[in-house]
Every structure is written in C-alpha cells, then in structure tokens.
C-alpha cells in the first residue's frame, strides 16, 4: 500500500504530536515541557492542514486558521498546564477559538450563546471553586500525570483513525446504497429543513426548528435545568456543616 503525500503528512504529524504530548506530560523540566506542548500543538495544526481547508475568500481561510490554531494550541496547553487557574484560562481561550469556528460554520447564535454560557458562567464558576478549594496554588497531584504513555497511545490511535477516515471520505463519496438498509421511513424533521439557502442559517430558522420539531425536548431541557439547580443546592455543603 502506498501513501499519498497528504496521508503521509497526516500520519507523520499525528505521530510527532504524540511525541510532543508525551514530553509535555512527563515529569521533566519546565522548559522541556513547554517545548513539548508547542511541538504537539504545531503538529496538530499541520495534521489539520493535511485535510482540505475551507475554500473561497482569503479572509475566510485566514480566520479559519486563526481560530483553529488558537483552539488547538490553547487546549494542548490546558491539558498540560500544572496550574489549575492557568488551565481554566486556557480553556476559556479554547472556547473562544471554538466559537470562532462556530461563527465560520454560520451558527452565529450558537457562537454567542457558547461564549456567554462557557466563558461567562462556567469558567467563572470553575475559577471560583478553584480559588475556594485550592488556595495554595502548588499541589503535588497537579505535578504528575497519571499513566501518560498509555493514555497517549490509546487516544492518538483514535485520533489517527478519525483523521484517516475523514481523509478517505473527502476523496471518495460514501456509497449510501452499500450501507445497511433502513428498516423504517427516515423522514426528515419538517421544521429543520430551511426554505432556501438564504434563510438556512438565520435565527428565525433555528427558532422554528427548536420550537417546531424539538418543542417537547425544549420543555424537558428546561425541566432538567430546574432539577439540576435544585440538586446543586441540595448537594452543596451547608454552612451549618462547616464552611470551606
């Protein structure tokens, strides 16, 4: 079996990022770990370039690589950072990068909602708990990763398989008829099909889809939020049991 250039680039960069990740997670000197994380994130970006990027206007491409690069780099640094507060801040940056990608996928409402919910609420709550529970900053359990080599082998095998199959898909169309036959009618949800290309990604179409096709699910999700709020109040330690 011969590899094409794109396949070779993809496999080589995935392997390089695994090595960089192993350096970054191992108990080594600070500088070596930062170099490892930089290698891992750069190699991940190179692995993404092995697939077809967005075609079209130059500013689209520039924005894609900006957002994708910031999401990948900051998530690598989040996973390998030894300070929980820095990890939370890197996660906020990764969220911003992912939201930029949402915007490029013409989902502006979701981009705004994700920034508000994640960067505005969840990150603040995480930082609050970190500062409440871990005021010393340095803790021994943040200094060493658990079984880094085995975890890297397992997850990078999965990553390589995923990227490989994406590369296959973009080269040859999937033969639908060869798949397993449907046993029931697979009608599309009526409200989720946009009228035209222009209204396809407007807020109005999204609202029609949510409150048309998914009305019961929206109600259940609201109930779930209520139950989770009550549960959080019930689980959280009382002042009578001693404060943190």
């Amino acid at each position: 079996m011969t590899l094409t250039a794109a396949q070779g680039t993809m496999l080589a960069s995935v392997a390089t990022s695994a090595v960089g990740m192993w350096l970054a997670l191992s108990p080594r000197a600070m500088r070596l770990r930062i170099i490892g994380a930089a290698i891992a994130s750069a190699a991940l970006v190179v692995a993404v370039t092995a697939l077809d990027g967005p075609r079209g206007a130059l500013d689209d491409q520039i924005l894609f690589w900006l957002f994708a690069g910031s999401a990948l780099v900051s998530s690598v640094f989040m996973v390998t950072s030894r300070e929980p507060v820095y990890a939370a801040l890197w996660f906020a940056l990764a969220t911003l990068g992912a939201c930029g990608l949402f915007m490029l996928l013409s989902a502006p409402f979701l981009a705004a909602a994700t920034v508000i919910v994640y960067a505005g609420a969840i990150i603040v709550t995480f930082l609050f708990v970190i500062m409440l529970a871990q005021q010393t900053g340095y803790t021994f359990y943040d200094q060493r990763a658990r079984t880094p080599a085995a975890a890297i082998v397992a997850s990078w095998l999965l990553l390589g398989a995923l990227l490989w199959s994406y590369q296959q898909w973009q080269n040859e169309p999937v033969n639908v008829a060869a798949g397993p036959a449907l046993t029931a009618d697979a009608n599309p949800n009526p409200f989720s099909q946009p009228d035209s290309e222009a209204t396809a990604h407007s807020m109005r179409a999204l609202g029609r889809s949510l409150f048309g096709d998914y009305l019961y699910a929206v109600e259940i999700a609201g109930t779930l939020l209520l139950v989770a709020a009550i549960g959080a109040i019930a689980i959280a330690p009382r002042r009578a049991e001693g404060t943190i």
């Binding site: 991940l44 692995a47 993404v48 370039t49 697939l51 077809d52 990027g53 967005p54 075609r55 894609f64 994708a68 999401a71 990948l72 998530s75 990764a94 992912a98 990608l101 490029l104 996928l105 990553l159 995923l162 990227l163 994406y166 590369q167 898909w169 973009q170 040859e172 169309p173 999937v174």
Partner: peptide, 15 residues
C-alpha cells in the same frame, strides 16, 4: 462527500 468541511471535523476530533 464532505468536501471542505473535513478540516472542521479534524479540529473537532482533535479537541
């Protein structure tokens, strides 16, 4: 099949 969306999928897989 998925055309230029493959790189978005790749970023999602990496995350």
């Amino acid at each position: 099949m998925i055309g230029d969306s493959a790189s978005f999928l790749a970023v999602g897989a990496a995350l």
